[in-house]
Design a protein around this nucleic acid. Sequence first.
DNA 1: ACTTAGATGTGA
DNA 2: CACATCTAAGTA
Length: 189
Amino acid sequence: MEPVDLSKRLQLSFYQRDTQLVARELLGKLLVRRVGDELRVGRIVEVEAYLGPQDLAAHSSKGLTKRTRVLFGPAGHAYVYLVYGMYWCLNVVTEAEGSGTAVLLRALEPVRGIGARTQGPGLLCRALGIDGELNGQDLTSEELHQVDAPLADPALIVAKSRIGVEYAKEWARLPLRFYLAGNPYVSRS
DNA sequence: ACTTAGATGTGA
DNA sequence: CACATCTAAGTA
């Protein structure tokens, strides 16, 4: 097993910044999930930024509801929701409380303890055992957190339009999906 | 490449 | 009621 430094856990201040910046900087970082005494670790290779109530692709564009309560809450917490009745999606809440901004984690490169596919937001959650129970979870917690790690080559970051948001009019076209070019674990090229 | 099914919570 | 930050399986 290759050595991995899990000591530098990302703090709340990391998340309390511009959403697109957080999205870009999350590439290469490690997502750590603890299930019982088992650790599952993956390197983030694909994310999407959701920019708040004015962003028609963001759930916060529907306003503050029972579902979006966590999304409008403080940064550094997990916004987890069910999509298409079958798959869970994990987002990290960003910026100031009330901003309704978040970054969707779309794909991981397996690092340790991951035995299932992680290319795509639904598969990622299934592989890590993430469901609605973790909605609102503090992302600096033992159960679920992220760890700083160097990104070998920042020039590999590509920005394209987000997936599955065609209904969002002009917002659907903005380059808010970020991924590592050529990485085989990205959900689509 | 395109087509469709699958399951269910959410908001209108 | 229509649709959703998706995936798998089918046809070609």
